[in-house]
Design a protein around this nucleic acid. Structure first.
Length: 271
DNA sequence: CATATGTCCTGAGAGC
DNA sequence: TGCTCTCAGGACATAT
């Protein structure tokens, strides 16, 4: 997610610009735009960091700009998909990149400017679990092992493990050959081990393909290029198709916690 | 305490 | 053709 925007490191923010559009309701911005602009103006971006699904820009006064793209937000250093959905432009000086833009078609994303104290409250360990790419099997079992929740639902809980989205939870459980409806407390050590391996392999593969641009076309990388991982999905958005694993059963779509889950009933048979 | 549900937002697509 | 309706889902607030 931070790929392609490393060029903003060591730049100085000359201006924050908020394009106005009457058709769109404003995205969530904290604090209000005027205060945000005033505080970031003249600040240097000293580092950039991914925390779960968020992008964090660290400023030289230790305040942080936290961007949560959620479903529809993008951070871009190239022209955005449309002009009308551009939410914020940061004009930068002194580095490789002179413009960092935040774009959002539906306004579900959030932008926050946080003091060091607020940052700990919002993104501290109480609110955000260990990163999915760093968590150990032991941590995974300690976190979820006694939960009665379905494993698919649990994997989406960012307080437990950070960085797994809905699409990836389905792909991970297919790769691990685990039924998404299975209760956490009934999973075996062998299954936890496979889930742990699958978390890394699926996420690393997805990142290598620059993510998934689904049928709504929203997702783009920082250069406004579509991802290609959607062409490598094993189950997500493939309901009714023959499973690539068993080449016999059809992929099914079910709903868990109001979210789509895709799986192969044969390859991921309980228990 | 653990888990479940309602809410926000826009645009695509279905149905008539 | 053009309208109305439904749906998509990440994180948080509120309810059970």
């Amino acid at each position: 997610m931070c790929r392609g925007i490393d060029g903003v490191i060591d730049t100085r923010i000359a201006k924050a610009e908020w394009p106005r559009n009457r058709r769109l309701k404003p995205s969530t911005v904290v604090p209000i735009r005027a205060a945000f602009s005033r505080r970031v103006k003249g600040r240097k971006i000293t580092a950039i960091q991914r925390m779960g699904k968020r992008i964090v820009l660290i400023l030289d006064d230790d305040w942080r700009i936290v961007f949560e793209p959620r479903m529809t937000g993008l951070a871009l250093v190239a022209n955005p998909p449309t002009d009308e959905h551009l939410r914020l432009s940061l004009h930068l000086r002194g580095g490789k990149v002179s413009l960092l833009m935040f774009w959002d078609r539906r306004g579900l994303s959030t932008l926050r400017l946080l003091s060091p104290e607020e940052f700990v409250k919002v993104l501290g360990p109480a609110r955000l679990g260990p990163d999915a790419l760093r968590i150990s099997v032991r941590q995974l079992r300690e976190t979820f092992g006694k939960s009665r929740r379905a494993i698919k639902v649990a994997l989406l809980d960012q307080r437990c493990v950070a960085g797994i989205g809905n699409l990836y939870a389905s792909e991970i459980l297919f790769e691990a050959k685990v039924d998404p409806r299975r209760r956490c407390d009934l999973l075996t050590a062998r299954q936890w081990s496979r889930i742990h391996t699958a978390i890394s392999s699926v996420l690393v593969e997805a990142v290598s393909y620059e993510g998934s641009t689904l049928s709504d076309g929203t997702y783009r990388n920082a250069l406004n290029q579509t991802g290609d991982y959607q062409n490598h999905h094993r189950v997500y958005d493939l309901a009714g198709q023959i499973c690539c694993g068993c080449e016999g059963d059809e992929i099914r779509r079910i709903v868990q916690a109001q979210r789509s889950t895709f799986f192969c009933p044969t390859c991921q048979r309980m228990p």
